[in-house]
């Protein structure tokens, strides 16, 4: 017969692998910051003396628009979706302002660009929320539609286009206090808004809920179509804002300007710990993810590696990180 075994309370706290995994699961931002620190050290080793406040400013400046696009991915991925139209919308919005600033003026240009972005988001949201089109397909389709319209616009406006407005160049590429990027003036409040929105509002709670379990959310009274329509509008408008910064940062206005940022924006969210299956993640990790990708890019370009190497490395990193998250989040 089996005897009763006396119960003992859990032993002294040790830093076991289980604990590490728990840390990774609860606070993925801590190991991510560790990875970022390693990358900074690598940068310094490769090009001694390069790491400085100015270098940090340049990195942050380059990471800000990517972090905004990655914010779009974070929020849509929390609901189990994705927004593949952010690249096209960002390019479109920068381009629209560039073509309108000479005529109707900057304010009109911004308004038109953001209104168009909102309409694109509204259509995506209606497709995903009401007609149940898979977000991947819906937003991919919308990105082609947006690119097509932007091309039409380009043909009509080519004569009056007058380039990126000074204000955007200042905001996207400008620096104050010696090394602080001006884009932070826009980004810091925006990031705070996203973080508070996700963690402290009923709307944020619903984003997580719908991604975690759409049936349970429905049974609890959530009308997911409302949540999703608002979500894709927010995402598209944020992408429009990121487009202003991209055109300012690069001093280029083209209908394909931000297209190359699309996959890195997904990558930054995934690396930051947001699950593409929904219900898990947050914006803090995403921002660090955007910085990590930016620093890696800079390391590779300072080594003179071609774009292909960057792509391979990004791809490998995404796969590695996604696999690591799956391992730690499964019980």
């Amino acid at each position: 017969m089996t005897d009763t075994v006396t119960t003992t309370d859990s032993g002294p706290k040790r830093l076991t692998t289980a604990r590490l995994r728990g840390l990774f699961r609860e606070r993925p931002i801590i190991p991510l910051i560790g990875l970022l620190a390693i990358l900074v050290v690598v940068s310094e080793l490769i090009r001694p003396g390069i790491v400085s406040l100015n270098w940090a400013g340049v990195m942050v400046r380059a990471a800000v628009p990517l972090a905004i696009l990655a914010g779009c991915q974070t929020m849509t991925m929390l609901t189990g979706g994705i927004d593949l139209s952010v690249g096209a919308v960002a390019s479109m919005s920068g381009f629209v302002v560039a073509t309108l600033v000479g005529g109707p003026g900057l304010a009109t240009g911004i308004l038109v660009a953001l209104a168009v972005a909102a309409i694109v988001g509204l259509i995506s949201g209606i497709g995903v929320g009401i007609f149940r089109v898979h977000p991947l397909i819906m937003t991919l389709g919308m990105s082609l539609v947006v690119l097509g319209f932007a091309n039409v616009w380009q043909i009509r406006m080519v004569q009056t286009g007058s380039g990126v407005p000074d204000q955007f160049r200042d905001l996207g590429a400008g620096i104050f206090l010696g090394f602080v990027p001006r884009s932070l003036l826009l980004f810091v409040p925006l990031a705070i808004l996203i973080i508070l929105g996700l963690n402290r509002t009923g709307y944020g709670r619903l984003l997580y809920a719908i991604g975690d379990n759409p049936i349970a959310s429905r049974l609890s009274g959530a009308r997911s179509w409302q949540v999703l329509i608002v979500l894709y509008v927010i995402s598209a408008v944020l992408a429009g804002v990121a487009g202003f910064l991209y055109s300012g940062l690069t001093n280029v206005a083209s209908v394909t300007l931000a297209d190359t940022a699309l996959l890195p924006s997904v990558a930054a969210a995934v690396i930051g710990g947001t699950s593409i299956m929904g219900g898990r993640g947050g914006y803090g990790g995403t921002m660090v993810g955007a910085l990590i990708l930016t620093v890696i890019s800079s390391i590779l370009s300072s080594l003179g590696y071609p774009e292909a190497v960057r792509q391979i490395l990004f791809g490998a990193l995404i796969i590695f990180v996604a696999a690591a998250y799956t391992r730690v989040t499964e019980p």
């Binding site: 509002t201 009923g202 709307y203 709670r205 609890s220 009274g221 009308r223 409302q226």
Partner: peptide
């Protein structure tokens, strides 16, 4: 969760 489902309760918790 049910506290936050109506649109009127989407604001700060």
């Amino acid at each position: 969760l049910p506290f936050s489902t109506p649109i009127s309760r989407w604001g700060p918790i």
